[in-house]
Amino acid sequence: MKNKKALVDKFFAGNTNLHEEQMLKKHFSKHTSEPTDAGVSKMLTAYTTLAQEKVLSNNFDKALMAKIRVSNPKTRSYVWHWSSLSIAASLLFAVGIFTFSEKKEAYVIEQGVRYDDMEKAVGYADKAINEAIAPLKLSMQSLQPIKGLEGALIPVSKGALLIDNSK
């Protein structure tokens, strides 16, 4: 190596560039015990090794990424949105169960038989009512007008009679 002494002096003056420093490292990696190197070879060899050293533990990336995800406002808002949706869904489900459990069922029991069909239920209800009022209809038909009062009854409107006392 040409001008080795001058380059070493330049190195210790802090004036070498990166290329010159690389040249020195390369030279002293091959000539490790030159009597005049004044410890330069050891220093430069050590620097090369120190530059490869790992300070961080193996799970550094994983731990860091977990912290970043937790600190990420976007991720946090997603978490909040999903939580809100879950809560809303749970509430809807609970309300639904309550509503359906409270719903009144329409049915008719006819002679000990339960009918859930609405049309049938209404049909049976009509039939039951007609049967109940049938004797009353017969009674109405058997009523006879009282003699002497035939003309006194004047219809004034449907369903009502007015008694005329002037006759």
């Binding site: 120190l50 530059a51 300070v55 961080l56 533990s57 550094f60 990336d61 731990a63 912290k67």
Partner: peptide, 24 residues
Amino acid sequence: LKDKIARLAFYLLGNNEEAEDATQ
């Protein structure tokens, strides 16, 4: 850049554990 950052932190703080915390 993690290794460069960690090494600088190590030489400034003096130990691996603190360097790792600082890097994070």
